[in-house]
Every structure is written in structure tokens, then in C-alpha cells.
Design a protein around this nucleic acid. Structure first.
Lengths: 348, 348
DNA sequence: GTGAAAGCGCTAACAG
DNA sequence: CTGTTAGCGCTTTCAC
């Protein structure tokens, strides 16, 4: 294994000079720099991570904690994870993957051992077990999701309330007066993740404002569940002409069922989905949708912890409250259109 | 920060004793052990990861390298990643998440810096860029997937050839004589990932053996693409009564299209899918399927690197070739049945 | 069964 | 602009 000392000897300089060439923490004459860089290349030197962490008490590692449950929409989580890893590399950091498996203890372990300099928590719940530990850890942390009490924490999330309002605005703008929400699975509401409720709040608020009637039904992702939910919706509100779908796995079954029932999209019924753009484009009818900005959430979370660690150029700010709600963007595709003139029972 | 030295003082022993209590590498009288453990708990001591890595030249970290492309089926990748992380913890290791972003260089960086003790590569291609570096790294590594030349490497994968044979056997057993394969996207074949070809090989072999006719068509996941593929299949082979689907994202559109065309599953046409069990159970018609054993692949990969690192109880064996193909399991659900008596054109 | 002490490879004062 | 040096906290001989 090539060490810094060997590089120093090879380049005819002292160890500290090599170290400073690497870190850029003091000015080096371009002559020495060249020779050192040359030696580094020739010897194939890589600084030892452990030694560096020990001496500098910074590991250059960010811990990313995934939720225990897997009922979250997986592609979004994956996209966040990849964005976190990519952005972290841009800041000379690596990412340690923690699953919820170990529970809140993982926070203590990773922080206590100095394994990670900072952490990012995904799928944060309103009352999250991990938050007390995160607060007392006194390490930069960023949450993806919005807890009930974000005091002293950094959080990024999609502005779900605005998302809800946007969906209603779009449908109302097309003359829909009676809409239904195909919501998340009941378990999601019970777990109090917050985002589902916030979406509903936004939907209800804007509906009230615009005089639109709303019916909300939670819905699992299975075909049967969607069938049942749809049946109950049309049973209770036969005049429904607009649907907002928040459960991504319900989308395909939903479209399939509507087609089977002879309800044309968007002629008879308009559908707005809250889902990744990639999904919205692949369905049988391209979906008007509000995207979940997974990449941006991951990127911002990393930038937040870097800033809070004092590595962003600005001074450190661990402990400051910082809530960032990303504005929703609605993309109009083929699944929404004007409300049918007479919103009566099934056509034909 | 609590250090080992402080624990030692608190317990009235020497630093090395504390270290040995922690590692179990020498026998400690139960008296001292108790006192040390007590002190550790009281002081909330966590060994410093950097110091430990430096002194022992083992980081207790496994690098997991994900593919750059995102056209792999995401839920499977995620499941593998979670299984890797979970199993790693059972072996006192953490997982570092690397994306393909950096390319093969990432291997060099992580290994050179001693950041990771071992690595696991996902989505390995037949001629994978990373393999030369992995070979010269002389660190334990495990591949998920099977390269053209596995010499000196450890690999786990589903036995896709056997999977193909199994699908054909099942359909042939139900009297199907004319089957079609809805394959992966053309890009997957072009990239030479191997698994798609191996599945086909198995399908063709068993078909030849059993006198079944096979038509293969690559297929993207989009609705249009599936529609086109299906049209071409039934155009060319109207008598097709069995379908093997390998592209998971094609499944929902496929079922939806068959229904629209008035082809009942399984009465008119049988469908076997190669996909996670969870997907197979959620579709409108529960799918007879061969599962991708994602969890087991992740788990085995970790166990392989642990063994090769000499941490599995047995002696180390880096450099030994070790190819492990997991046997496929076919689960019969509702999407397959006897071939219709007269396999003619569309019913009705 | 336990201690003492020599590093592991790097960083960051301190000294010029 | 560069060199010297004292640790960082732990593991692991060696010694008893």
C-alpha cells in the first residue's frame, strides 16, 4: 500500500506538503505541486480513508437512512438514493446505506462511531422515532419529508398542499365540479406520514374555494382494491368527472378498469396523477400529472447537510430550522379535458 | 467523545483489555468483562470507526455498486440493496452505496483508500468494464449477474436458463404447442447483460426437446410498445396460446391489452411471467410466475464476500472461482391453464 | 488473565 | 512557501 510518506519521499518534499497539495489548504508553489502530483500518479497513491478520518475527525461519509417499510413507492426512493449518492460525490462524500432494520439505534451507532459526518433520513413520519436522536446527535442532518415538529431541523419535501390545490385548480379550470380522490393505502394514513394528509388538505381547501365537491377514498394498489374503490366512488357520486390519484400503484389498474367500464379518458372522466413523470408517460393514456421531484429532493438534502456542516462556503448552521417545500409542477398530458356537458350516468 | 482510554480508566483496566473485551480475541475473566461492559454502557462508548480502520486495516464496510442505467427493473434492485444492507449488518458490516456514475474508477478509489473491505457489483454485464479492476484489486468481491468470463470471481444469479426451461415445461405440460416470448427491451439485449439471452436459450432448448414452437420478440415497457409486440405476435402466429413475459413493466399493459382484445386469461391464452412475487400477486389476473430471488441474491453475495475475506469461519479464498446459480421456482397462479382445444383465431 | 507500548497513515498546529 | 512534530483512537505484538 502506497502511503503519503512514500509519496513525499518520491517527490522530495515533506509529508505535510503532500497533505496540503491534496487538501489545498495552503498555497503551494506550482513547481512542488507538479512534482507531488506526478509522484501521486506514478505511485498510484490513494489517501487512506481511516487515517484521514482519524486525523481530521471527518469521514467524508453521509449516512442515508431508508425506511423499514417497503410500502413506499419504490422507484421514488431509488431515485432519491441515486441523487443523494451522485450529489454527495460532487461534494467529495460517499453514502452509507442504512435500512430501517436497526431502528433508531442506527443513528446512535453511526454518529457515535464517527462513521458518518452527517445523515439524511428518508420517509420521515410526523412523529418520527429517530428525531430525538437526531436532535441530540448534534450532527448535520436533513429530513426528506416533514415531521410534525421540525424545530431545529432541516427538511425538504414536495409542497403537497400546493400539489393538492394545483390538481383541483386544473380540474376546476376544465369545468369539473365533482371530483374524487383515489388516495393512498389506509396504512399510509394510519402511519401519519403527513404527505397524504397535506395533499388532502390542499385539495379540500381549493375545492371549497372554487365550489367543487370532493369525495376521498383511501385505496390499496391491488386490482381488486382499486375496483372496489372505484365502484364506491361512482355509486356514491355518479356525477364524478374528475379523479385525483395519489397511489402510484393504483394507476394502471384504474385506467384498465375505467376502460373496461366504458368510461373514456378524458372524454368521460379526467384523471390527474401524483407520480413520477416516467410513469405518467408510459401509461395507456399519457397522464396529466404532478411529478414527485425525487432527484431534486435528494440533491437538496445533500446540499443542506453540506451547508450545515459548514462545507458549503458559508458558516455552519447545525441546529437552525430550515424547511424547504418544493413547488409542484403540473404537466398537462392526455388524461384531462373539459368536463362532459351532462355529467350523468354511464354513456351508452 | 468517549474514547477507549476513558472506558479503561473508568473500569480500572488497561486500554488493551477493553479492546479485547470488545473483540473477544482473548479470554477475559468474567469479573473484568462485567466491569468493562458496565463502563461502556455508562459512558455511552462507541468505538471510533476511523481509528479502528486505521489500526486494523479493515473498515467493516462493503461497497455496493449499482448500475449507471436505470432501465433495470427498479424494485428488484432495491430489494437486493436492502438484502445486502441487512445481511451485511448481521456480519458487523455497513454498506457504501456507489452508483455507476463514476464508472470503473470508483472501484479503484474505494479499494485504494481502504474505504471498503469488499465489494458487490450489481447488474454485471457479459464484458464488464469493472471486472479487470476487480480482479487486480485483490479484495473479496461478489458479482450479481454472470459475466462471460467468471474466472477467479464469485458470482450469484438466478439460473435463467433453467428458468426458461421451467416456463416452457409448465406451458407444454398444459398442452400449449405454440408459445411466444415477450422479451426485454432491445437495449437490454444490445448491452449483453446475459440473463435475457440465457433465458431464451433455456426456452429454446426445452421447446426443441418438447416439440413446442417459439416466437421471440423484444419489447419495451410502454403501452404502445407492448401493443405493437402483441399485434406482431398474433399476426405472425395466430395460433399462439402461451406467453412468457420477461419484461416486468410490460406485464400490466399486456394484461390490459389482452382483455381489450377479448382474449381471456387463461382460457384463451396462458401467461407466465418472470417477476417478483409481489408483482405477480397484484395484477388483475394473479400471474403464474418464476420469481427473481432478489433477497437471496443479495444475501448470498454478502455471504460470499464474507467467506472470501476469511470472516466466515473458513479460511479466506479470494481468487477462487465460485459461480452460484439459484434454482428457479415456478408458482402456479391464475394466469395459466390448459391450451384451448382449437387454437384458432380470436374467439367470438 | 492482564499491561505497556509501538505503531497504523494522516492532519494541523507550530516554527521558520 | 515549506518542514517538523505531536497527536487522532484503536489494535496488537511483546512481556509478565
Amino acid at each position: 500500500m502506497v502511503t503519503l510518506a512514500e509519496v513525499a519521499r518520491h517527490a522530495g518534499v515533506s509529508a505535510s506538503t503532500v497533505s496540503y497539495v491534496l487538501s489545498g489548504k495552503r498555497t503551494i508553489s506550482s513547481g512542488t505541486r507538479q512534482r507531488v502530483e506526478q509522484s501521486i500518479r506514478e505511485l498510484g497513491y490513494h489517501p487512506n480513508a481511516g487515517a484521514r478520518a482519524l486525523a481530521s475527525s471527518r469521514s467524508n461519509i453521509i449516512a442515508l437512512m431508508m425506511p423499514l417499510r417497503t410500502d413506499m413507492y419504490v422507484p421514488v426512493m431509488m431515485e432519491i438514493a441515486v441523487a443523494v449518492a451522485t450529489t454527495a460525490r460532487e461534494h467529495q462524500h460517499d453514502v452509507l446505506l442504512l435500512t430501517g432494520q436497526e431502528g433508531p439505534e442506527a443513528v446512535r451507532r453511526v454518529v457515535g462511531s464517527g462513521l458518518a459526518d452527517a445523515m439524511i433520513l428518508m420517509d420521515v413520519e410526523l412523529e418520527d422515532d429517530r428525531l430525538p436522536l437526531v436532535r441530540e446527535a448534534r450532527r448535520p442532518a436533513a429530513l426528506i419529508g416533514l415531521p410534525a415538529d421540525p424545530r431545529g431541523l432541516a427538511c425538504v419535501d414536495l409542497d403537497f398542499a400546493a400539489t393538492g390545490r394545483l390538481c383541483v385548480e386544473h380540474l376546476a379550470g376544465h369545468g369539473h365540479r365533482d371530483i374524487a380522490v383515489v388516495g393512498e393505502a389506509p396504512a399510509v394514513y394510519e402511519r401519519h406520514t403527513g404527505f397524504a394528509e397535506r395533499t388532502l388538505d390542499g385539495i379540500r381547501e381549493k375545492s371549497a374555494e372554487l365550489g367543487v365537491r370532493v369525495l376521498h377514498r383511501p385505496c390499496e394498489g391491488s386490482y381488486e382494491s382499486v375496483a372496489g374503490t372505484l365502484a364506491r366512488i361512482f355509486d356514491e357520486r355518479p356525477g364524478t368527472t374528475g379523479l385525483v390519484v395519489q397511489n402510484e400503484s393504483a394507476i394502471e389498474p384504474l385506467l384498465s378498469l375505467l376502460r373496461q367500464q366504458g368510461r373514456a379518458v378524458p372524454e368521460d372522466i379526467s384523471v390527474v396523477a401524483i407520480c413520477p413523470d416516467q410513469v405518467a408517460g408510459q401509461t395507456s393514456v399519457a397522464l396529466t400529472s404532478v411529478a414527485i421531484p425525487a432527484q431534486e429532493m435528494g440533491r437538496r438534502a445533500v446540499e443542506m447537510v453540506m451547508t450545515r456542516a459548514g462545507l458549503g462556503g458559508a458558516p455552519a448552521m447545525t441546529g437552525t430550522e430550515q424547511v424547504e417545500l418544493l413547488p409542484p409542477r403540473l404537466t398537462v398530458r392526455a388524461s384531462t379535458g373539459p368536463a362532459p356537458a351532462a355529467a350523468g350516468p354511464l354513456p351508452g
